[in-house]
Design a protein around this nucleic acid. Sequence first.
DNA 1: TTCTAAATGCAAATATATTGCATCCGCAAT
DNA 2: ATTGCGGATGCAATATATTTGCATTTAGAA
Lengths: 144, 144
Amino acid sequence: MKSAIETFRNMGHPATRGRGEIMRILAESPIPLSPREIRERIPDPKPDASTVYRNLSLMVSLGLARSVALHERSRRYEAAMDGLHRHRVVCRRCGSIESFQPKNCDLSRIEKDIRGTLGFDVTDHSLEFFGACADCEGKQRGRR
Amino acid sequence: MKSAIETFRNMGHPATRGRGEIMRILAESPIPLSPREIRERIPDPKPDASTVYRNLSLMVSLGLARSVALHERSRRYEAAMDGLHRHRVVCRRCGSIESFQPKNCDLSRIEKDIRGTLGFDVTDHSLEFFGACADCEGKQRGRR
DNA sequence: TTCTAAATGCAAATATATTGCATCCGCAAT
DNA sequence: ATTGCGGATGCAATATATTTGCATTTAGAA
């Protein structure tokens, strides 16, 4: 995706190969990735891990990426495409992750409620679901 | 809270001082705490950090505690009181955390949707809101 | 082509979490 | 109250994740 590189330039940050690769990898992945996974997918010569971390932080602060917390040891990152936002569905059994595009993510009532009750201005939210994926559900049933 | 200790015993796990302290601290805290914060609040002699980690894992698997992911470096934990569940509101500016009891946390439609679309059996979810707290909002306004 | 600010690699530091093992302790049976 | 056993703990070592300082390199403007 070339526009990502443009975005870097427009914001006064040099475009480097590493940055382009990270953007591409995030854009192509259906699930959020950890810094380690991202680096693994960059073809050699790979940038140093610290560079990956630094760029992910930069990308988050530029609004190009978002971090996703799935109760794991490390954070994951996803491309922040426009306003489009997805929720995550995580299988507690096999650890598989799926992304879910809510038909009508109506949390606006709750957000309004929060503003009213706490005077807190909500800018975004993070919603993850946990349970058993179709495969694991199947196994479980079958075993009974 | 004595019942927590009972719960341990009933589930075949010896009640120790450390376990009691962790339960008490989580039950008393209005916000989820990191393992480090929990340990700091245990009066001397403090259990070893590894013991705190081990017990938190145990408590999660026994359903006595839940982990909360707030996009930080470490996970936080909260007491899992009955079915009662709270959402978190985090200020991106000052980092303050508030708990929010949703009036009617109606995610059941979304969960049903997930089952229908992915065949995924949702057992629980995690919902966090981010933005600016009343204090920081005020400062920001004042500055204009 | 030249220059400069910013990015990178590398190594070290720090934070977080996990594990092996010897010892200790809760608790149930005596 | 005493005893015995299995699980819990402390401690040290290790693994993993993330951050930082600094010398060197590079992108992009002049």
